[in-house]
Amino acid sequence: MRIRVENLRFAYPGRGFSLGPPPLDIAPGQRVAFVGPSGSGKTTLLRLIAGILTPDAGSVFLDDTEISALSDRERRRYRASRIGFVFQDFRLLDHLDVRENVRLPLRLSAQHRARDAIATRADELLDESGILTKARARPRTLSQGEKQRTAICRALVTRPGLILADEPTGNLDPENKSKILGLLIERARAADATLIVVTHDESLLPAFDRVIDFAQTLDQSLDPAQSEAR
């Protein structure tokens, strides 16, 4: 999936933070890392691309769809069927077991409601990620690495064209970091999906095709006084 960001402007109301990145064009299948200091707007841009947030001005195109121009309902549908999201703190639902957590986006997506497909697709991914034996376990009983593997399976289950990962290795030990990132990149490549990962960890950057450093390239400000002066 190709991603284009044009003339984007976004500000959180009353929080003195504004984001105005330069034009951005990410080619289909590219693996991109967003790096930069905390609060530099990496996660905000990721959420704008996902259509979770809507920009104050400018456009976000996913292939030919201007997601920023869609209604809330349309963006939700688009997100559920075309975008996979991996969160830093996993955000697995504790009252569902691993298998049901992975199946959740399939159930949310109107395009993937076939019962058999839901059943087999989730188990395939769990098997490929080495956690099929944990399919009936509750998330609270898993290790950090297992939780993130589950979250990755959940992001991949709808075969999305775009995978967004917000610091997916932030809560992992060094050994698990490279394993999880390796898994994410491998799964994205296998699915021929575009991958954007927000990370602080420079040791992981060689695995990416492209690195976008928010500290140098993006027009952003952290200081409320500065943003107001601007």
């Binding site: 997100r79 559920a80 975008i83 639902l93 959740l104 949310l108």
Partner: peptide
């Protein structure tokens, strides 16, 4: 709240 935010971020409508 975080559970419902997760559902929303995954594409779950508010009505659901």
């Amino acid at each position: 709240r975080s559970e419902f935010e997760t559902l929303h971020d995954l594409g779950c409508p508010r009505s659901t």
